[in-house]
């Protein structure tokens, strides 16, 4: 009982406090590769705190939908962190088919962010919303196919059992299928979190933006919530990646949580390295990479089904 309480407490603490640190690690990694010192590791925390203290400027053209986007987007990603197992055996909430809830929560967050962008009445933001929806139509099937690979390997439909199967526990074709799913998930992590080569969260070059363009009219606490939701979404994807390859049993409190924390930091460093090494893709080439992610997971399923 006491152990379960500690596990739950750690789960919530990690889900709330850890995500912005990962963005800080990415920035520092990129700065290191560029030969700069870079901002402090805790800079994303300072930024979010600063934005939450500020006031908002709202256009007369906007309705409640404009503010519902950031709030619901943050709520959706925070609920997703409760469903995905972190350093514990099972998520805070676990039931058969919960992986569909995670995918649906991401979809909901995306839908409301795009709705908020449309609500601003700017054709420029509407263009970003259209891009986001177009690319998500390829990203969502890849995510679901990846989950199906894990479901097939584990024979279970809840994330706690699905994520208990790691690459190194299955040397044969099941391991190969998990490896394919891992690669697909990494591409999705970059796409869904607007990282290079899909998007650049630091740019404001109008014609190439996808996600950033949707949130241009948001300011103050709403923008703070968007930034925090972005960090949390990255954290969820990093958690899925780590759990796919790192054997975390979930019953060794002293070993599993440090292992998980190190794994997520390593994922952030890896993203920083990728961003330092490659440039942004041309917008027209983004679907090709997303299609590749779909294919990788699809091959994983074919491997398991044959």
């Amino acid at each position: 009982m006491f152990g379960a309480l500690i596990q739950s407490g750690l789960h919530i603490a990690f889900a709330i406090a850890w995500p912005p640190l990962l963005l800080g690690v990415i920035t520092r990694t990129k700065a290191f590769f560029a030969g700069r010192i870079g901002p402090p590791l805790l800079q994303p925390y300072y930024d979010i705190a600063r934005l939450l203290k500020k006031g908002s400027v709202l256009s007369d053209a906007t309705t409640w939908v404009f503010l519902a986007g950031p709030v619901a987007g943050l709520a959706a990603t925070l609920i997703a962190t409760l469903v995905v197992p972190l350093g514990d055996r099972a998520g805070f909430v676990s039931f058969p088919g919960d992986f569909l809830l995670v995918a649906a929560l991401f979809g909901l967050g995306r839908f409301l962010t795009a709705s908020a962008a449309l609500d601003a009445g700017s054709s420029f933001e509407a263009m970003g919303a259209a891009r986001e929806m177009t690319f998500s139509s390829l990203a969502e099937p890849a995510l679901l196919l990846g989950f199906l690979v894990l479901a097939r390997v584990s024979g279970a439909l809840d994330l706690s059992d699905m994520m208990a199967e790691t690459l190194f526990e299955h040397p044969g074709q099941q391991g190969a299928a998990i490896a394919l799913m891992f690669m697909s998930l990494f591409i999705l992590l970059l796409a869904e979190n607007c990282r290079i080569p899909f998007d650049d969260p630091t740019t404001h070059l109008e014609l190439t933006m996808i996600h950033e363009v949707m949130v241009l009219d948001h300011s103050g606490p709403a923008l703070g919530m968007i930034e925090y939701a972005r960090a949390t979404k990255f954290f969820v994807f990093a958690a899925l990646l780590v759990r796919a390859i790192v054997p975390i049993a979930g019953d060794r409190l002293w070993a599993d949580w440090p292992l998980f924390a190190t794994g997520t930091l390593a994922a952030a460093v890896l993203v920083g390295i990728v961003e330092s090494m490659i440039a942004r893709l041309r917008l027209a080439r983004v679907p090709v990479l997303l299609l590749s992610a779909c294919m990788l997971s699809g091959f994983g399923i074919i491997l398991l089904a044959r």
Binding site: G172, G175, A176, A179, L180, M183, L289, S292, L296
Partner: peptide
């Protein structure tokens, strides 16, 4: 090799890289 299949998968992935890139 115990992880032979996982290594062979990398060969397949490189096939797709060769097909997908434009440079």
């Amino acid at each position: 090799l115990p992880y032979l299949d996982s290594l062979v998968i990398l060969v397949l992935v490189l096939n797709f890289v060769a097909l997908g890139v434009t440079r």
